[in-house]
C-alpha cells in the first residue's frame, strides 16, 4: 500500500486524515482510487495535481510505477515562468 500525503486543505475531504493508504500500481491508478474513496478530492484531481514519489516530483507521470512502500505527496499542478 502506497502512503499518500495530502496537503492541508484537502484533509477535510478525507475526514481530516493527512495520510491515506492506497493500493495502486501507478499514479493514474492511485488518483482514480483516491477519487473513488474520497469523492471530495475529485475536483482537485480534475483541476490538476502533480505528485512527488519518494522525493522526486512528477508533473504528469500518470504511468509512473509505485512501489508498495512508496511515499506519495499530492501537490498542486506545477507551473512556472
Amino acid at each position: 500500500m502506497a502512503k499518500v500525503v495530502l496537503w492541508g486543505s484537502l484533509r477535510p475531504h478525507t475526514g481530516g486524515k493527512a495520510e491515506v493508504e492506497i493500493e495502486a500500481r501507478n499514479v493514474q491508478e492511485l488518483l482514480a482510487r483516491l477519487g473513488d474513496s474520497y469523492p471530495g478530492l475529485q475536483s482537485q484531481i480534475k483541476r490538476g495535481v502533480s505528485v512527488s514519489i519518494d522525493g522526486l516530483i512528477y508533473r504528469e507521470g500518470w504511468l509512473q510505477p509505485l512501489k508498495p512502500d512508496s511515499e506519495v505527496f499530492l501537490l498542486p499542478r506545477m507551473t512556472g515562468g
Binding site: 500525503v5 496537503w7 512527488s52 522525493g55 522526486l56 516530483i57 511515499e71 505527496f73 501537490l75
Partner: peptide, 9 residues
C-alpha cells in the same frame, strides 16, 4: 522534509 512535503535529495 521540505515545508511543502517531499524530502529533499
Amino acid at each position: 522534509k521540505s515545508s511543502y512535503g517531499p524530502v529533499y535529495g
